[in-house]
């Protein structure tokens, strides 16, 4: 690998990291704004024009608030929890293709940090580790609400991970690759995957909601039962980490939905616009972000529409509805693939 490429990579990594953080930051703003609009309000609009500096103010507030570690908590783990949550949230971005190739000089640079051949497995791995942040934090707080929140979170995340994985498997069966870049490229040639995998998409979507602990699956932090759930005892920036991690997760999962099922950075008729090279890539990146923003918006939209599940309902939905549906979807996909490949031509 040549040094110049390493430099490009580092720049890309920094860019992705920054973008992730900024988007997450502004998601908090967007959340409040969307909430306001849906509830016929304006939302924050004081800090700067339309309140766009609100996230900065919030961040400032988080940093300056009193740092509080409960006496009976497990000190090291108490700190480890939010750090892990943040870490795993940030780690997911590396396999997402943000746009087409960019040509700098004679080098072609992919707008994807790394296109490993087990990209989806990597994602599943990181997601499955993500639950530790919540569990450790909840346990270390030594508070019954935190513990309950953590237990709920972990059982919820494990349960929905299965359906999520199964839904992805049908997609993988269809595309025949575990590389996200390849999946996105395939959608350039054909239609977006959502056309072929509507059921899979639906399951993935629902599971993504559950995995990010977003409404209507926000039981781990359901305020009226558990005060704040696993982060009851947290304050200051450690709380900020948890909240931030949630928004990053939201962003990443939106990006995933967009790339897996909605063509990623591709958009219809992109090759008949007459755009070439870097220009096209930039438009593609723009389109991609539009898609991502739509899904982030969708998250918020759903939050203010649907009521929260009861815990037994949540489990029933996960185990008795989504998993069988995902298996059914897998089965159908298998049959269709088999039919196409001529396994049934006797």
């Amino acid at each position: 690998m040549l040094p110049i490429e390493i430099i490009y990579k580092i720049i890309l990594i920094l860019a992705v990291f920054t973008v992730t953080l900024v988007v997450a930051m502004y998601s908090t703003y967007a959340e409040r704004k969307v909430a306001g609009f849906i509830q016929d309000r304006y939302g924050p609009n004081r800090a700067g024009p339309f309140g766009i500096f609100q996230p900065l103010a919030d961040g400032l507030k988080m940093f300056t608030k009193q740092e509080f570690i409960p006496d009976s908590s497990d000190k090291q783990l108490f700190v480890l929890g939010p750090s892990l949550a943040m870490l795993t949230a940030c780690m997911t971005g590396v396999v997402i293709p943000w746009g087409g190739d960019i040509t700098i000089g004679d080098k072609i640079v992919k707008l994807q940090i790394t296109d490993i051949n087990i990209g989806i497995l990597y994602l599943l791995g990181v997601v499955s580790v993500g639950v530790y942040g919540i569990m450790i934090g909840g346990w270390a707080s030594n508070n019954k609400y935190s513990l309950l929140g953590a237990l709920r979170a972990s059982s919820q995340m494990i349960s929905y991970e299965i359906a999520l994985g199964l839904a992805l498997i049908s997609l993988i069966m269809m595309t025949g690759t575990l590389s996200l870049g390849e999946i996105v490229r395939q959608q350039d040639e054909g239609l977006a995957n959502v056309v072929y995998q509507p059921l899979g998409f639906l399951i993935f979507l629902i599971c993504a909601f559950a995995e990010t602990n977003r409404a209507p699956f926000d039981l781990p932090e359901s305020e009226n039962e558990l005060i704040g759930g696993y982060h009851t005892e947290y304050s200051s920036m450690k709380l900020g980490f948890y909240l931030f991690a949630e928004y990053i997760n939201m962003f990443i999962s939106s990006a995933l939905i967009a790339s897996l099922y909605f063509g990623g950075y591709n958009f219809p008729f992109q090759h008949s616009l007459g755009l070439e090279g870097n220009m096209l890539s930039m438009v593609q990146t723009f389109v991609f972000f539009m898609k991502v923003f739509f899904f982030i918006f969708f998250y918020m939209w759903v939050r203010w529409t649907l009521p929260r599940f009861r815990f037994d309902q949540l489990m029933n939905l996960g185990w008795k509805t989504l998993i069988p549906l995902a298996i059914l979807n897998m089965f159908i996909t298998g049959i269709v693939i088999g039919y196409k490949n001529g396994f049934f031509n006797f």
């Binding site: 306001g36 849906i38 509830q39 016929d40 309000r41 203010w304 529409t305």
Partner: peptide, 9 residues
């Protein structure tokens, strides 16, 4: 909910 999004505040 989306219809409320566009309603007068």
């Amino acid at each position: 909910t989306i219809s409320h999004f566009f309603k007068k505040k």
